[in-house]
Structures are given as C-alpha cells and as structure tokens.
C-alpha cells in the first residue's frame, strides 16, 4: 500500500497525489461539494445565487421572521424530541431484554427489527398511513410521534444491543451474586455500561426524525407542518434564498448531533 509518488517538476500537482488517495478525495468532494455550495449560497447577498455579491445574514434574518417556518421548526423539534425519547426508552428496554433473556420468538423479533431497519421509508410510510386511517386517528403530532418512533426504534435497539454484546454475560450474574436484585443489577450494571450507546441512540433518533421527509409527508395532516415538508413546498414553489439558509441550519444541527453520537460510541475504543 505504500505509494512513494513524489512531486516532480513539470508533471503537475495531480501526479504527486497517489491515485488511490485522489480517488478518495474525489468521492468526498462529490459527497460534500453540493452542501458546501449551498451553505456558501446561504450567505450570498445575490438573490439568485449568480456570482458572489457579498456576505449577508439577511436570509437567516428573514427565516427568523417567518412565522410559518418558526411554527414548523417548533413542530419539528417537538416531534424529534418526543420520538427520540420514546424510541430510546422502548429500544433500550428491548435491547436489555434481548440481551438478558432467552425466550421463544427471540430470533423472530431480531429478524423483524432487522427488516424494519432495512425497509425503505416509503414502505413504512404507506403502511403506517393505512394503519392510522384504519384506527381513525387524526393525522398530526400524535401520528408523527408514533411513526417517527417506529423508524428510530431499530436503530436504538440494535445500537444498544451491540454495545451490550461487547460485555461479559457474567456481569449481571456477578451483581446478583453480590446481593443485587434483577432490577438493581440492570440499573447499576447494564444501564451504566450501555449509557454511551443509549445517548448516541437518542441523538441519532433526533436527527433521523428532524430530517425525515418521506414518512412525515404521508402521516401528517394539513394543520401540522414540519420543517422538511416546509422546505419541500418552498422548493416546489421556486428558489428562495431562505431555503438555503434553512437547509444549512438543518444540516448543521444534524452534523453536530451525528459527530457527537459517533464520538460517544467510539470514545472508549483504543
């Protein structure tokens, strides 16, 4: 894997970079360039994004004054916090159950989690819509909460479960042996060990919920708009520089949450 290409005068800079590394850089550019241009555009004074006409925060300011966007933002944050919390509670308890107990149907449950994780958003969106209508639920906050919890759940469960798998099975037995009841053993030993994964699960769920457009599009009603849907309709109505600002903000929140979650999951690996 050692590539000792050196810069040779007259052969250009590209020749100095090993081809493998150049390829990697190009892929990263492909993944990040569109967002970089968009974020840059959100600070561009030009209304139509043609050429750089100076730095401005106008678009962020007009976001802050847009009542509809503020409402959608509040809704989004509420749904994300509620869904992430419920998914974290159910998912963590579920992961503890899957880790600690052997029961009939355990494999089936794991399989169902895996399938849910892999299934495309739109399949989940359609079936949940059918369920909610069938139950005569009013589409809005409550249905969004249930639906978002649903797609976050496998992520939390499998993340926490994977973390627990890394620990000695005898730890809970040791706690019981030393006088802890089952619940005390879980509270004092299992949950503290799983804590980084639980926190990461919450952060990832929050991000997933905040960013979701497909499921939300199907399961919310006209009176309860969330940010991605607001962006979607703004985009369809034509380019507005405020969308750049909003998209940049959303990206920044996701980015920081994901980086934090990754750090939590990997910090005690050597």
């Amino acid at each position: 894997m050692k590539n000792t290409a050196r810069f040779e005068p007259g052969k250009g800079i590209a020749a100095a970079i090993p081809p493998g590394r150049l390829y990697g850089v190009l892929i990263y550019a492909f993944l990040y360039l569109p967002m970089a241009v968009l974020i840059l555009g959100s600070f561009n004074a030009s209304k139509y994004g043609i050429g750089w006409q100076g730095f401005t925060l106008d678009w962020y300011e007009s976001l802050a004054n847009d009542a509809e966007i503020l409402t959608a933002a509040r809704n989004s944050l509420a749904v994300a916090a509620l869904s992430a919390s419920l998914a974290t509670v159910v998912g963590t308890l579920g992961a503890v159950g899957l880790h600690r107990y052997r029961f009939r149907g355990r494999k089936f449950l794991m399989g169902l989690l895996f399938v849910t994780l892999m299934s495309p958003d739109i399949v989940m969106a359609v079936s949940l819509l059918v369920l909610f209508i069938g139950l005569h639920l009013e589409l809005g906050l409550f249905t969004l909460w249930l639906a978002h919890t649903g797609f976050c759940l496998p992520f939390v469960t499998l993340t926490v479960h994977a973390r627990l798998q890394g620990f000695d099975n005898a730890l809970v037995e040791a706690a019981r042996d030393l006088g802890a009841g089952e619940w005390t053993a879980i509270r004092r030993v299992v949950l503290p060990l799983a804590l980084p994964a639980i926190a990461a699960g919450w952060l990832m769920s929050f991000t997933l919920s905040l960013d979701d457009a497909v499921v939300s599009f199907f399961v919310t009603g006209p009176d309860f708009e969330v940010l991605p849907l607001r962006i979607y309709s703004m985009v369809r109505l034509g380019v507005k520089p405020e969308v750049n600002a909003l998209a940049s903000l959303l990206f920044a929140v996701s980015l920081s949450f994901v980086v934090l979650a990754q750090w939590l999951l990997h910090k005690d690996r050597h």
Partner: peptide, 16 residues
C-alpha cells in the same frame, strides 16, 4: 455524516 443528514436537503443542494 451524509448518511444521517437530510436527503431532501442534499437533493436540494444538487438541484442548486
């Protein structure tokens, strides 16, 4: 990071 960030936002960026 891109795995977890809004694909709608990134599609919109591509459109730009």
């Amino acid at each position: 990071v891109p795995f977890w960030t809004s694909s709608l936002v990134r599609i919109y960026a591509i459109r730009g």
